[in-house]
């Protein structure tokens, strides 16, 4: 496997990643032996991501050593990172549409 498994609990794909992938269902309070150790803040299911560092809103989230999106809210180390607090910066026709004010309603969108 590429990347590094930590405590058989999470997988860190690259050195400068800001998130790690849960290799099993993680409960809140679980200690992960990263350096320094981190405490899982909430339930994080298998395959989902835990923050390795604090993120400010708007800050880039990195996995595979590459940007995978932006934090929409502040995310603390140990918290679950997913669609509720992280979003794509790509394919954002909604932003283009908002700028252009093209007036397409939700119903027009496919």
């Amino acid at each position: 496997m590429k990347g590094e498994t930590v405590g058989e609990a999470v997988l860190v794909m690259a050195d400068d990643d800001t998130v790690a992938t849960a290799l099993e269902d993680l409960e809140g309070g679980r200690e992960i032996p990263t350096d320094p150790p981190l405490t899982v803040a909430e339930t994080i299911e298998f395959g989902h991501k835990v923050a390795l560092v604090d993120h400010e809103a708007g800050e880039t989230v990195r996995k595979y050593g590459e940007p995978i999106g932006e934090a929409t809210d502040p995310i603390e180390r140990g918290e679950w990172v997913h669609t509720h607090n992280c979003e794509s910066a790509r394919g954002r026709g909604d932003r283009a549409g908002a700028d252009a004010g093209d007036g397409l309603s939700e119903a027009d969108q496919t």
Partner: peptide, 16 residues
């Protein structure tokens, strides 16, 4: 492909 989303005034997040 990315601009198709722009054309439709939507974004990829619902489908991708």
């Amino acid at each position: 492909r990315e601009q198709l989303a722009d054309l439709m005034g939507t974004d990829l997040r619902g489908a991708q």
